[in-house]
Design a protein around this nucleic acid. Sequence first.
DNA 1: CTGAAAGCGCTTACAG
DNA 2: CTGAAAGCGCTTACAG
Lengths: 323, 323
Amino acid sequence: MVTIKDIARAANVSYSTVSKALNDSPLVKPETKTTILNKAKQLGYTPNFAAKHLVTKRTNTVGLVWPEINRVALTELARHVNKMMADEGKNILLSISDPTEAIALFSRMRSDAILLFEEDIPQNQLPAQLDMPLLSYGVPGINQFPTVGVQHEYAMELAVSTLVESGYSSIGYVGMVDGIGRRQLAKQTGYLDALKKRGLKPILIDTKGLNSIDGFTALSALLAKSPLPESLICSSYDIAVGTVRAIRQAGLTIPEDVALVSYDNIPQQAEADVPLTAVGVPVEKLAKSLVQELLRLIAGEEGLVRELVPELVVRASSHISKQ
Amino acid sequence: MVTIKDIARAANVSYSTVSKALNDSPLVKPETKTTILNKAKQLGYTPNFAAKHLVTKRTNTVGLVWPEINRVALTELARHVNKMMADEGKNILLSISDPTEAIALFSRMRSDAILLFEEDIPQNQLPAQLDMPLLSYGVPGINQFPTVGVQHEYAMELAVSTLVESGYSSIGYVGMVDGIGRRQLAKQTGYLDALKKRGLKPILIDTKGLNSIDGFTALSALLAKSPLPESLICSSYDIAVGTVRAIRQAGLTIPEDVALVSYDNIPQQAEADVPLTAVGVPVEKLAKSLVQELLRLIAGEEGLVRELVPELVVRASSHISKQ
DNA sequence: CTGAAAGCGCTTACAG
DNA sequence: CTGAAAGCGCTTACAG
């Protein structure tokens, strides 16, 4: 591989001058700079990350630990974070290995920071001393590192409240009910609390899975044996997609026959078969918050636990058109 | 961060001895080794990848370029490759950036090799000179780097042939028909050729997408207006999942009312609602082949273009139980 | 068996 | 503006 020494030789300067030119230092004469840059391109020079890192102590790399790589909303979030970090000159590198191994890897690589999409890593599964900031996206409480989370309970309160204001008192919840994963559990709890507070009867529809097809299957089964509630809250975008299909399949109309509010504030909700009313922290805000926290942590500032406030976006699916 | 010099100081030896001990060199006395290893653990030492790489010229890292991160079968493949490379002491690092950027990143990082899951990168979008082996998983032909591919056409021949042998002459194809992506196109071509060869009439059912829900929607729409073909070939596991649901939803039985063969040879096929007959290169074989090629390339051997031979696994979905 | 020395490819004070 | 020197954290011949 070509190094700055090769360029130096080709351009007839010292390699420290090459280094400065490559880093666009004002200390080098414009003409020299041009010559050097040309030679570099001509030789097909690619800077050596490792060597640079060794002296600068920065890798400009953030490790993302995400063994699952699934869910539309999480993928969307990863995409935004990747893009926004790139704009800051930081590269996201993803590992799908077990969290413990992935963290060890990023530690050896001296990533500037680690971002955890895996929510359920107890403190004791972490290396005893990790000289590296770590940020978790998830539900605070299970461990004590900095976390960006979402007020899932409040999101459900918003969802229930908009339906109640529209006159609904029969409100079902479509989601994975057996509480695998703290995020799912928090949503469900929020729903139950919001109904209880209003003296309404909860109707839990268990999807037994998190894919759109699971939402579809649960709703189809329900439709086959009993009428639907007047309105439904879907626990995620994926679930909502399946739910909508099942409802339309049965010849029912949204929102006329059943109103629907979906979790996950992502643009895809607007492009569903029926534009979906959604609650959740807008994915751009979530990504921005993660990126800001990451940058703060990298800058050596104190880690925080933050919970972001969900927002409600009303679209056709929860709004009954008067005719 | 603690370095080998810190350990040397703590263990009262030179840091070159520490280096040897850490690498389990036979040149260092067992007792000294033990002392050093203990001190290292005690101090929470993590080796610095960059420094090591700088001298050894190896990063033991393979970059995976996969902007999409979707599809069950691809995720399954990534998981297998990740695991098998880990067993070889190599770490897979995934980038979801644009392929060009991702490749540039892995180039600066001096990955030992790059694996492309993105199939459609023309040669001219690559850096002029990439001093690094690159392996593509996909359809050979669009570029000229080493490729591991699948004989999609033969897979479809297998699928059609097993159905024909079971007595079917009405065989539909469920998939994304407008040819986005060369993998999809190859499957479709294989199907059309296999039918043509037998003088059978092709029936293309366009899913207009690659998610399970797209398969479901396409089948539902079809069921609503006309009877199904006697048998169907689904272009992927995701599509098959949706297809099966739609068929059962309509009160039909597999394989009695419609026989089904699915693409993608992954264990998940056996666990579908109906165990699915599947064609494709078994995912472990595919992963093994990718890993072997990668290791060969890393060892400096010549790059090849290989196409693997799909296999047929017969399960209940294509087998009519005589009663 | 142990240690001193050179060097991997860079950046960055420091002289000139 | 340019270059020589030191040093980042390691490995690996080479002496002892």
